[in-house]
């Protein structure tokens, strides 16, 4: 019911993906709803990260990879995987946060400003304003405002990950991809990231890969369960966790295998 009322931000249509001869994704079709958190869960090797990395064409960086099918991005109905679309243009619209915090070995300020510099923003004032805004949005400003020009690696792991989130937010992405963003963090840092995601979804659509089912249940509105490159079940998180439609999903979420 809820599904029909929501606008769709992106939609995978019979998406298959190949690493050379190996087919990692098998005809996945599912929507990503606007200003909602969609979680991808499944056992290791099920293709959830591979699927996520299709959205910003990360696979284009490596030879021998091939997409088949479409990912349609709204509101302009663009097929992100079309040959005519430059992956750089895709990444201008879609941000990403990685598994391990990967700040650049530069200052806190320069980390956040990088996306703006890449886009050719020359005005110093505009850069400063956007950096501050992004750090506020990532709930990091109060902790780093005194040391904006110190190396980013002086921050704690949780702060580094929020810095990476601020870095992605600075360029106003329409869709934000999270690839197991808390797997390298302690429980307290994890909680702060989860809380942050909850705030962020008011303005940006979020797609998150997680190996932690409790996390998916806590942060997401929709959940997709994947197994061996296939989408087994997609639905509203509460319904999928309480009353899964498929036996396979039930076995996984009740911990009978994983």
């Amino acid at each position: 019911m809820m599904e029909q009322l929501l606008a769709t931000k992106a939609e995978a249509r019979s998406l298959s993906f190949y690493y050379g001869d190996f087919q990692a994704l098998k005809g996945i079709s599912m929507p990503v709803h606007e200003r909602q958190v969609t979680a991808l869960i499944g056992p290791s090797g099920c293709g959830k990260s591979t699927f996520l990395r299709c959205f910003n064409r990360m696979h284009d960086l490596y030879p021998g990879n091939r997409y088949d099918g479409q990912i349609i991005l709204q509101p302009d109905n663009t097929d992100l995987l079309a040959r005519s679309i430059d992956p750089i243009d895709v990444r201008m619209r879609i941000g990403m946060v990685f598994q391990k915090p990967n700040p650049f070995p530069k200052t806190v300020f320069e980390n956040v400003a990088y996306g703006l510099r890449v886009r050719g923003e020359r005005s110093r004032r505009a850069v400063e304003e956007k950096v501050e805004q992004a750090l506020h949005d990532a709930a990091l400003w109060d902790e780093v405002k005194e040391r904006l020009h110190q190396p980013a690696y002086n921050l704690s792991g949780g702060q580094q990950q929020r810095l990476c989130i601020a870095r992605a937010l600075a360029t106003d992405p329409e869709l934000l991809l999270f690839d197991e963003p808390t797997s390298a963090l302690d429980p307290i840092a994890t909680a702060s990231i989860e809380e942050l995601m909850h705030d962020l979804k008011k303005r940006v659509t979020i797609l998150i890969v997680t190996h932690n089912m409790q996390q998916a249940a806590r942060v997401s509105d929709f959940t997709a369960y994947m197994y061996l490159g296939e989408l087994v079940e997609f639905g509203v998180t509460d319904e999928l966790f309480i009353k899964p439609q498929k036996k396979q999903t039930e076995d996984y979420i009740t911990g009978r295998f994983g």
Binding site: K100, N102, V118
Partner: peptide
């Protein structure tokens, strides 16, 4: 240089040359 640094740069929309030049 770790691959995650390159990916971090490309994920923000950087071109190859920008990645080379800044990182």
């Amino acid at each position: 240089i770790p691959q995650v640094i390159r990916e971090g740069s490309y994920a923000l929309g950087a071109t190859r040359w920008q990645t080379v030049r800044y990182h």
